[in-house]
């Protein structure tokens, strides 16, 4: 899923490892989300949103598939 995590993280001046520690996941998980290889759970999405003082929609950009699903 497309997301603005790298942009928000850079704006805050924190590393992937620091963000990972803040939301209790591994650095690889943050890296996978940023590379759009892993979609986080709803709980982690809210954790990230809370950390950046944003909404889930501010961070994650949902795009319906071509068939509308």
């Amino acid at each position: 899923m497309k997301n603005r995590l790298p942009e928000l993280r850079e704006r805050e001046g924190i590393s992937q490892a620091e963000l990972a520690e803040a939301v209790d996941v591994t650095r690889q998980t943050i890296n996978s989300i940023e590379r759009e290889r892993y979609d986080p759970s709803l709980e982690l999405a809210f954790e990230l949103a809370t950390y950046f003082d944003a909404t889930v929609e501010d961070i994650f950009l949902y795009e319906a598939d071509e068939d509308g699903v």
Partner: peptide, 10 residues
């Protein structure tokens, strides 16, 4: 130390 998280579980 976070060794196992939701991505690991998935």
């Amino acid at each position: 130390v976070v060794l196992y998280d939701e991505r690991y579980e998935r």
